[in-house]
């Protein structure tokens, strides 16, 4: 895989970590919260598969201010 060698992974790593962190925070909150606006399982899918947009949508719309 040429692309794999072309990319400076050490430099990109922090971005991947941040992306992962964002998903992780959303997941932790999703686990702790009792209810969400809209189906809970839908938010799990959003958080995991929509990259950055998923967690943002979850925090802004899905998360119920308890």
């Amino acid at each position: 895989m040429a692309i794999f060698n072309d990319i400076n992974w050490a430099a990109i790593a922090p971005l991947l970590v941040i992306q992962g962190l964002l998903i992780l925070i959303a997941l932790i909150d999703w686990l702790k919260g009792k209810s969400t606006n809209g189906p809970r399982s839908m938010w799990l899918i959003f958080i995991i598969f929509l990259s950055m947009i998923g967690p943002i949508l979850y925090f802004v719309i899905g998360r119920r201010q308890e």
Partner: peptide, 21 residues
């Protein structure tokens, strides 16, 4: 407590850093 102090900085960093990358 509602994680804004976590996710907003992270999202801003991603938005800004993704572009040059």
């Amino acid at each position: 407590r509602n994680f804004k102090w976590m996710w907003v900085p992270l999202v801003f960093i991603l938005l800004a850093a993704m572009e040059p990358v």
